[in-house]
Design a protein around this nucleic acid. Structure first.
Lengths: 158, 158
DNA sequence: ACTAATCCCGTTGACGCCCATGATATCCCA
DNA sequence: TGGGATATCATGGGCGTCAACGGGATTAGT
């Protein structure tokens, strides 16, 4: 399975290293990635990251001439510009660039959050503040699955 | 058959392990899953679970959205984020994360409930309460089945 | 030579492997 | 048809292994 799933709390040691969760490493390996790409989230004070597959989608979107949305192209370009290619040491740890640590306000503990093709890295307190309500919001608006069928819309980033 | 069918009562031991019913394990294997994914149910105080196939659909539905649309509260994203990838030991048992145990109020006994592509894990008392409620509601509406026929198994029922 | 990245070990604790036991269901044969 | 033998699954617990972690040693880069 090439997907990033679930939440994992790990420590950021004083050398700036953090262990990437084992299941995330497995997903990266399944994507053929020996490294991963991390960039600041523009929606939140968090780090966002992905493997080769998602990055390739971003790149491909810029190469298309018939752009659907200039806004999307801008966002893709911004990500590619601000992405750091991070490698893993022999124990499966990565060193987070200072820029990203500051953007996300990371300290001792960080939480990895799987979101399918991507994942995020949060300061636990920020994560609680920003995301703990999402579950409740979804419930209260009576969220249900609509699609889940085999058919898919033609979208970009495929 | 890759579907989860029927009800099975199993024990949650003091290590937090629970045997996944044999037929459910067979369904997972038929899906090609050596693991399964468990997450808190939105509607009920229960654990919901699925195999690779369902989870891959969730992720695909996220990819169909514009990549940068406001996906934060999307149901699929929330599930991916709250899901735990659980593996089975040699005996076919999984350890249920504390978060899920608490959400469902599980104690000594749990009941596995097949729901087709997914299954649920309930505290037996909660299940009985909820189920009898659903039964009453359906009967008072004079509900009829549109699709396939109804119940197939005689199981625990109160 | 100084800084930073990578490697290498030792420690710790959780979880996966293993075996032994119990509880059912199935079969076989007198 | 009854009852013992067998197979299968669920359960309990001991123990080894490995992932996460911390820190020292080594290499690389400018």
């Amino acid at each position: 399975m090439t997907l990033f799933v679930g939440r994992h709390v790990n420590k950021l040691d004083r050398k700036g290293r953090v262990s990437v969760p084992k299941s995330f490493r497995a997903a990266l390996r399944a994507q053929g990635s020996k490294i991963f790409y991390a960039y600041p989230s523009f929606k939140h004070g968090a780090v966002e990251a992905c493997g080769d597959i998602f990055l390739a989608r971003l790149s491909a979107s810029l190469d298309e001439l018939d752009t659907f949305s200039d806004e999307q192209d801008d966002l893709a370009a911004i990500i590619l510009e601000n992405a750091h290619a991070l490698s893993l040491d022999t124990e499966g740890r990565a060193i987070l660039p200072r820029e990203l640590v500051e953007h996300a306000g990371l300290s001792e503990q960080v939480i990895f959050v799987g979101r399918g093709a991507r994942f995020q890295i949060w300061e636990p307190a920020s994560y609680d503040t920003n995301r703990s309500g999402a579950f409740e919001r979804a419930r209260s608006r009576g969220a249900t699955f609509k699609l889940l069928g085999g058919e898919k819309k033609e979208g970009r980033f495929r």
